[in-house]
């Protein structure tokens, strides 16, 4: 099957609504269909990658567990907006996955270079 590059840009917090879960579900499905999937975490979506999140306190499934399984589905292009990590004082050591830190210019190029860009 033909392969396209798909960039999912996540910018909302993980548990306030269903966007993060729906973005991850789509990422896993697209990867299963052999698509080249990249994930970019900006703004409050960066909290999705925190190792220390404890959603069991609000009886939610831990989405970090899904994130940590992404490499098993050949999704290893994980990008983190530099500015977000700085303003939130979140460092790479606190994250459940290794990611590439990117600035706004690099994000602009990523949006240009992917076949499909979807925002969640």
């Amino acid at each position: 099957m033909q392969s396209k590059s798909i960039l999912l840009i996540l910018s909302h917090a993980p548990y306030g609504d269903t966007r993060a879960k729906e973005a991850l579900d789509l990422a896993l499905t697209a990867a299963a269909f052999g698509q080249d999937v990249s994930l970019l975490f900006t703004q409050d979506a960066l909290y999705l990658l925190l190792k220390s999140q404890q959603p069991q306190a609000i009886e939610q499934k831990n989405l970090a567990n899904i994130c940590s399984a992404l490499p098993m589905y050949d999704i290893d292009k994980i990008y983190i907006e530099n500015n977000t990590s700085q303003t939130k004082h979140i460092t790479a050591e606190q994250l459940i996955l290794p990611g590439v830190f990117v600035n706004h210019n690099q994000i602009a190029l990523m949006i240009r270079d992917h076949d499909v860009v979807l925002r969640f």
Partner: peptide, 20 residues
């Protein structure tokens, strides 16, 4: 139907236009 239908649409189509 499943999200596979969305993946297939992304592959087939020249443009996938989203309405957020």
């Amino acid at each position: 139907s499943g999200l596979g239908q969305l993946s297939e649409a992304a592959i087939i189509s020249d443009r996938l236009v989203t309405f957020g």
